[in-house]
Computed example of a mutant assay.
Amino acid sequence: MPNERSTTAFDPESVPVKDASTVMLVRDSARGVEVFLLQRVVGMDFAGGMTVFPGGGVDRSDSEASVRWTGRDVQWWAQRFDVTPARAQALVLAAVRETFEECGVLLAGQDPESVLADTAPHAQARGQLEARELSFGDFLTREGLVLRADLLRPWARWITPLGERRRYDTHFFVAAAPEGQNADGETSEAEHVLWQTPAESLEHWRSGRSVLLPPTWAQLTELSKYATVAEILAAEPKIPTILPIMSRTDTGIHIAFDGDEGYYDGGGPHPWANRDDI
């Protein structure tokens, strides 16, 4: 049977842009602020083999869920990300859901002032959520949990450039890892996971031991400017919508964005270096 990708014309303009949420979990350590990272399984359709933060696409159930919520209201989130209130709710729910699915950290508690100290009792539900056998709203309601939106901060927004076969409008959040909860790699999407300072992660990339997409590189670069988690959570960054431009060059494919010279001059591997499919 012929390979569909090689025989079917690719129309970049027809690729839909899907909403996605990504959460940068941070914690203080003797070496400074550390951030939780996953290396995605090689061969995945999007960002396979690359080092990323926990996150993923918004589900329809995230938009339709009715949950107890504490923190800034939906309108505030909508203004910060420049989206409709309905999209803002879905993005926040997706951020909390994806973080739970991908590393077992759940930003929720039995009441508006608490956060779960241990998520192990919800391991079965975590698997059901990842398999899409259970909606996040139903899970929170069943367990009597309050979503702690106040533990999240909006951080950045990047859109996958025109020319990719999968495109996402990704909204970045930051959150402090809750005391007592253990971020793990018990997900089908991760080859392995680790905590690193942003500087360590960038050095890991420069030495060729990891591959970072431009948005991941940009957020690690920004996080490296902060000395403590408290400073990060107190920050109120501007959140422009960043849409990089993809183009062909003599060496492969170039992704242009504000500050891209730091990415291309940094010495690390670039995921598009040898591509010729645009």
Rank of each mutant, 00 (worst) to 15 (best):
R60F: 11
T8C: 13
P2E: 10
A95L: 03
D73L: 02
D258V: 10
D28W: 12
D250P: 00
C103P: 07
R80L: 01
L147C: 11
F46T: 15
E130K: 13
D265E: 09
D169S: 14
D276L: 04
D45E: 14
Q128E: 14
L152P: 01
E222D: 14
P85R: 08
L25R: 02
R165A: 15
L93I: 05
G56N: 07
V42I: 01
F46I: 11
I245M: 00
I232A: 06
D258I: 05
E200N: 13
G267F: 07
V96I: 15
P54N: 02
R206M: 01
L38F: 06
S29Y: 12
E130A: 15
L194D: 11
E113S: 15
F53S: 02
W272I: 03
I239Q: 08
V96F: 12
Q219E: 08
P54R: 02
I278Q: 00
L93D: 09
T228C: 05
D11K: 13
A131S: 09
W195K: 13
V105G: 08
L140P: 05
R157D: 07
Y264A: 04
D82L: 06
A156N: 11
G144T: 12
Q196N: 11
P215G: 09
G43R: 05
A234Y: 01
T197W: 12
G43S: 05
S61Y: 11
L106D: 01
T228N: 05
L220N: 02
W205S: 02
G208H: 08
Y168M: 14
A175H: 06
A9V: 15
G56P: 00
E189D: 09
M1H: 11
L38H: 13
Q181V: 09
T216V: 15
P244Q: 14
S66L: 10
N274W: 00
I255C: 03
A183G: 02
H270V: 13
E13V: 06
G104P: 14
E189H: 13
A94R: 07
E261C: 00
A30E: 15
V17Y: 04
S135R: 12
E222P: 04
V74H: 13
